[in-house]
Simulated scan of single mutants.
Amino acid sequence: MRWVTFDCFGTLVDWRHGILTSADLIAPGQGPRLLEAYNRHEPDVQAETPELRYRHVMAESLRRACAEEKVELQADDASVLAATIPYWPVFPEVEAELSTLRAAGWNLALLTNCDRDLIAETLRRLPVRFDAVVTAEDARAYKPANAHFELFKRSYEPAAWVHAAQSYFHDMVPAHRLGIRRVWINRQGEQAPDPTIIQRVLPDLHGLLTAVQNL
Results as ranks from 00 to 15, higher is better:
residue 32 P to L: 05
residue 83 A to P: 02
residue 14 D to F: 11
residue 94 V to D: 03
residue 199 Q to S: 11
residue 100 T to L: 15
residue 51 E to P: 04
residue 93 E to H: 11
residue 111 L to A: 04
residue 106 W to R: 02
residue 161 W to H: 09
residue 13 V to I: 15
residue 93 E to G: 10
residue 135 T to L: 05
residue 117 D to S: 09
residue 196 T to P: 03
residue 105 G to I: 06
residue 194 D to M: 08
residue 192 A to K: 01
residue 59 A to G: 11
residue 131 D to T: 08
residue 162 V to I: 14
residue 134 V to D: 09
residue 64 R to Q: 08
residue 134 V to Y: 06
residue 83 A to T: 12
residue 93 E to V: 03
residue 10 G to M: 03
residue 198 I to G: 01
residue 133 V to M: 09
residue 84 T to I: 04
residue 67 A to C: 11
residue 182 R to Y: 08
residue 213 Q to F: 07
residue 93 E to S: 10
residue 84 T to V: 04
residue 209 L to H: 06
residue 118 L to R: 00
residue 30 Q to F: 05
residue 163 H to C: 06
residue 47 A to C: 10
residue 172 M to T: 03
residue 132 A to V: 10
residue 8 C to M: 12
residue 26 I to V: 15
residue 66 C to I: 03
residue 65 A to D: 00
residue 172 M to D: 03
residue 82 A to C: 09
residue 22 S to D: 04
residue 110 L to I: 13
residue 40 R to D: 07
residue 74 Q to P: 03
residue 172 M to V: 11
residue 17 H to N: 13
residue 131 D to H: 13
residue 28 P to W: 06
residue 51 E to I: 05
residue 148 H to T: 08
residue 27 A to P: 00
residue 103 A to Q: 13
residue 128 V to H: 10
residue 26 I to P: 03
residue 92 P to H: 06
residue 198 I to Y: 07
residue 148 H to D: 13
residue 95 E to Q: 12
residue 214 N to Q: 14
residue 50 P to F: 08
residue 100 T to D: 15
residue 2 R to M: 07
residue 171 D to R: 06
residue 207 G to M: 01
residue 30 Q to A: 14
residue 114 C to S: 14
residue 6 F to Y: 06
residue 43 P to W: 02
residue 188 Q to S: 14
residue 140 R to W: 11
residue 55 R to I: 07
residue 72 E to D: 13
residue 30 Q to D: 07
residue 196 T to G: 14
residue 51 E to L: 12
residue 123 L to Y: 04
residue 181 R to T: 09
